[in-house]
Simulated scan of single mutants.
Amino acid sequence: MVVPNMASRLLMSSLRHLQKIPKAGMSSGHSKIGGREVVGYGFNGQPNYVDRIDFPLPAIRFKENTPDIQALREKEKGDWRKLSLEEKKALYRASFCQTFAEMKAPTGEWKSVVGLSLIFISLSVWVYMGMKLFVYRPLPDSFTDEAKEAQLRRMIDLRVNPIDGLTSKWDYEQGKWK
């Protein structure tokens, strides 16, 4: 009974010790990476900046703090109605690189994908035609229509598989298909 108690005390003390260790760049609300503020957790817990539609809050601000931006941040703490539209846009662009509309805007990448796909398809058709012309032998004579008809006539004459096969559908008395 003494051992589990001692183990649980050791576990609890190590967990308390881990809680006191700050994560890199996440110890306080005003930590910085370079000149950029860490403002959140991020999509993977790392202090990095990524524009994502599914996780719209990056861990750090997009731009470094300059004296102009710092003055706007101080002004931002007051009444927002006193900020002009240009100042609001400058504050937004200091925190984020793109708006949602810019992230969702079509890039035209589909054109290059379709173009490359068509190039590869045309190359494969040219390779096939080259193989057919220069590598493959011509089809044997047994593939002609006359040879196929002669083979069918011979199967009927020999009564090949007369119960439920091909020649079972041939009327031998009238000489035509049933």
Rank of each mutant, 00 (worst) to 15 (best):
I69S: 01
A71M: 07
A71H: 05
R73L: 14
R73S: 03
E74F: 06
E74D: 10
K75M: 04
K75R: 11
E76G: 02
E76Q: 12
K77D: 05
G78V: 03
D79H: 05
R81F: 08
K82T: 11
K82A: 11
L83S: 02
S84C: 05
L85K: 15
L85A: 15
E86F: 08
E86Q: 14
E86K: 14
E87V: 05
E87L: 05
E87G: 04
K88V: 04
K89H: 11
K89E: 15
K89C: 07
A90T: 08
A90D: 05
A90N: 03
A90H: 04
L91Q: 02
Y92N: 06
Y92W: 11
Y92D: 06
Y92P: 00
R93L: 10
R93K: 14
R93G: 02
A94K: 00
S95F: 15
F96M: 14
F96P: 00
Q98V: 01
Q98H: 12
Q98F: 15
T99Q: 02
F100D: 15
F100Y: 11
A101L: 12
A101G: 14
A101H: 08
E102P: 00
M103R: 04
K104M: 14
A105Y: 09
A105S: 11
P106L: 11
P106H: 10
P106I: 08
P106D: 13
T107C: 05
G108C: 11
G108Q: 11
E109I: 13
W110S: 13
W110I: 15
W110M: 13
S112E: 14
V113D: 06
V114L: 15
V114G: 01
G115Y: 00
G115L: 03
G115D: 04
G115A: 09
G115M: 02
L116I: 03
L116S: 09
L116C: 03
S117C: 09
S117M: 12
L118I: 03
L118N: 12
I119Q: 09
F120K: 08
F120P: 00
S122W: 07
L123F: 14
L123H: 06
S124L: 13
S124P: 01
S124C: 10
V125C: 11
V125P: 00
V125L: 15
W126K: 07
W126G: 07
W126N: 05
W126Q: 08
M129G: 03
G130P: 00
G130E: 05
G130Q: 04
M131N: 10
K132R: 12
L133W: 06
L133F: 05
L133D: 06
V135Y: 14
V135G: 03
Y136G: 00
R137N: 13
R137W: 07
L139T: 02
L139P: 01
L139G: 01
P140L: 07
P140K: 10
D141L: 14
D141P: 06
S142A: 09
S142L: 08
S142I: 09
S142K: 12
S142G: 08
S142Y: 10
